[in-house]
Nucleic acid binder design. Structure first.
Length: 336
DNA sequence: AACAAACACAACCGCTGTGGG
DNA sequence: GCCCACAGCGGTTGTGTTTGT
């Protein structure tokens, strides 16, 4: 650990905080608030720099911190949030009440990363590590591990089954997703970005198209402004229905031809439970609703192709579906 | 028991964004 | 527009503890 230049100049203390220092800082902030952090050390009688005081408060002394080990649910949530947000620890932390970005970052680097690698999942990309990945030296990847089932990769269809009331999740007033939308219906086009609403988070990858329902996000408690379109905060519920540990239940089935959706096989969410139907003959995604197909994301087409909308065989439903997804993707994408 | 390696956690560093003068 | 102070963030590293040999 180094020392802030200001600390060095002023011969301020560095390193671990003593209980006495903690007490001074806690007392000061409890009674006066922190105000300007640079003035806190002087006012609190501490030989520390303001930056150090701020970190100590945020990461350790804050009264709303949840101490102790992370639960499996929290770990699952971190993995899923990381797949959407990347290394934006503060944003991830804002969705785990009582946890700090530092804490989550440490957990990720010391534990979760390792677990993912052991499961054959690249923690950076959240994709299964293929043999090809293992054979080539790549920065940040665990090259001495091979996915146990990578040789069994097959072409598979992925069915994304929605919860019972899909309209709630997407804020649709009324959509008649019915049998008119068969597996033969065309894909819904999307724009790049991520979206989140209600109990779902979605990601739209660059290629191929991927609908990624996974988890719900609690309200972002951070001060940053998040555009949520015309949806009220009440639609944002903190809810993860995972009750089991992702790391104990995940199974990876690498499919080199369909990299972007392989995460769906290890996401242990209600959205996927029992809903994945596999086929050996093609690579397609179907979005299914109560036994009926909402839409089909077919043949892993470039989502930016303007021609995609022209293929919609049920314009009314598919257009609304598509446009709402686009709107949410843009909205949420902008907030990241 | 002694040592080293691995691990977990706390704290610092450097950078960026923001707001005020 | 520029400079400065400050807050905040992510990456990195130091330190104490645990585990393995």
């Amino acid at each position: 650990m180094g020392r802030h230049s200001c600390c060095y100049k002023q011969k301020l203390r560095k390193g671990l905080w003593s209980p006495e220092e903690d007490e001074k800082l806690l007392n000061h902030i409890t009674h006066h608030g922190h105000g300007c952090w640079s003035s806190v050390p002087k006012l609190a009688g501490l030989q520390r720099c303001g930056k150090s005081c701020r970190l100590r408060w945020i990461n350790y002394l804050r009264p709303d911190l949840k101490r102790g080990a992370f639960s499996p649910e929290e770990e699952n949530l971190i993995v899923e949030l990381h797949s959407v947000l990347g290394n934006r620890w503060s944003q991830i932390a804002s969705r785990l009440p009582g946890r700090t970005d530092n804490e989550i970052k440490n957990l990720w680097n010391s534990s979760i990363k390792k677990k993912l690698k052991q499961r054959g999942i690249d923690p950076n990309t959240h994709k299964p590590i293929t043999e090809a990945d293992n054979n080539k030296p790549t920065r940040g990847s665990n090259n001495d591990h091979k996915s146990p089932s990578s040789s069994a990769a097959t072409n598979q269809d992925f069915f994304l089954e929605r919860p019972s009331d899909f309209s709630d999740y997407f804020g649709f007033q009324k959509l008649n997703f019915n049998s008119n939308l068969t597996p033969e219906s065309s894909l819904c086009s999307m724009v790049p970005g991520q979206f989140s609403l209600g109990n779902m988070v979605g990601s739209v990858f660059q290629t191929p198209v991927c609908v990624k329902p996974s988890i719900s996000l609690p309200p972002d408690n951070s001060s940053s402004t998040v555009s949520r379109g015309d949806h009220t905060a009440s639609n944002w519920e903190f809810q993860t229905n995972n009750t089991s540990n992702f790391f104990e239940n995940s199974v990876t089935k690498p499919n080199p031809n369909f990299e972007e959706v392989k995460w769906s096989e290890y996401l242990n969410t209600p959205f996927f439970n029992g809903s994945t139907v596999q086929s050996q003959s093609s690579q397609q995604i179907y979005i299914k609703s109560e036994g009926e197909y909402l839409a089909k994301v077919s043949n892993i087409t470039d989502p930016w192709s303007q021609s995609q909308n022209e293929n919609l065989s049920t314009p009314e439903a598919s257009d609304v579906f598509s446009k709402d997804l686009q709107r949410m993707a843009v909205s949420f994408g902008q907030s990241l």
